[in-house]
């Protein structure tokens, strides 16, 4: 009588362990967990959801409107969006409109907020005529410095790219307290010597594609407002014959349509479809394939 009971208990314990393991395993394997970009309202009725409004908000992955987290602060002059969602117990209440407590501090135009003055500003969730049903204070901070990263790892003073290949660099605005700042900003990337390395695209987003042109070293600079950050780009000789691809081995289709920030004066190969190590200073309509 005792043995079957012990055996059954052991069986149940095993089943429990298996169930727990199967529950934890998927969690452990999802390496790219992204915390929701929400923050609870101060009156506890719901959550404020942060939205990126442009392509150059450091809080949103490239091409995404969904931020990875609610910002601790947004950049001065940075643009962003906010939504509001009720907690379950308040579901069914009419959706509030969001407004700034002071348009001189955080401006609201056509649903886009813009940080105008450093410090805290309350965003009010207003229901009906004027009833404030929730509050969220947003801190606006000046961009103190920029960091440049490659594949989400902050780069040192120099990065390398093979001639004919590309790498992607991302600039991130930081506060004086080293906090990543939210908000879409105007970036301005430039290459000191486009005959060595040039940027693809307009160079007005936080992300820039750097293309190695010819062996040598040049300086890439990114500017946001009055804040600049530079990184030396060393172009190494091409190791492979002839194809242009990302350094990570992926094929990069570049639909470059702008010359902003590019001071190239070398031969323009507009409309060129390059399949070999192209070292010309093209700027427009260039489709680069290979890999």
């Amino acid at each position: 009588m005792l043995l079957p009971l012990r055996s059954r208990l052991r069986g149940e314990r095993r089943a429990l362990v298996t169930a727990l393991a199967s529950l934890l395993l998927p969690l452990a394997c999802t390496g790219d967990y992204m915390p929701p970009p929400t923050s609870e309202g101060e009156l506890g009725r719901g959550e404020f959801i942060y939205r990126c409004t442009g392509t150059s908000d450091a809080l949103c992955p490239v091409g995404a409107q969904q931020a990875t987290s609610f910002p601790q602060a947004v950049a001065l002059r940075g643009e962003f969006g906010l939504d509001y969602t009720y907690k379950e117990e308040f579901d069914g209440d009419p959706l509030p409109t969001l407004k700034s407590s002071s348009s001189e501090r955080i401006e609201l135009t056509n649903g886009i907020f813009k940080g105008m003055t450093e410090g805290y500003t309350a965003i009010l969730a207003v229901s009906g005529a004027s009833e404030v049903i929730d509050i969220k204070h947003i801190r606006v901070a000046a961009v103190d410095h920029l960091t440049i990263s490659q594949d989400q790892i902050e780069v040192g003073p120099q990065v390398e790219v093979e001639a004919g290949r590309t790498i992607k660099l991302t600039a991130s605005p930081q506060s004086a307290q080293d906090q990543l700042l939210g908000g879409s900003l105007d970036y301005w990337w430039t290459s000191a010597d486009t005959s060595v390395a040039k940027l693809s695209g307009a160079g007005t987003d936080d992300l820039v594609v750097v293309q190695g042109v010819a062996e040598g070293t040049t300086e890439f600079t990114v500017k946001v407002g009055q804040v600049t950050q530079s990184v030396m780009v060393k172009v190494t000789p091409s190791m492979t014959s002839g194809s242009a691809s990302d350094s990570d081995g992926t094929t990069d289709t570049d639909t470059d349509t702008s010359t902003t920030g590019d001071t190239s004066t070398t031969g323009d190969t507009t409309g060129d479809t390059s399949t070999t190590g192209d070292t010309t200073g093209d700027t427009t309509g260039d489709t680069t394939t290979g890999g």
């Binding site: 407590s101 002071s102 009010l124 207003v126 009833e131 404030v132 929730d134």
Partner: peptide, 18 residues
């Protein structure tokens, strides 16, 4: 200073406007 009604009776939100 603006004052708006809060979510409950006898609750108000004070807003520092200027």
């Amino acid at each position: 200073m603006d004052v708006e009604p809060g979510p409950e009776a006898w609750s108000f939100v004070l807003i520092g406007a200027g």
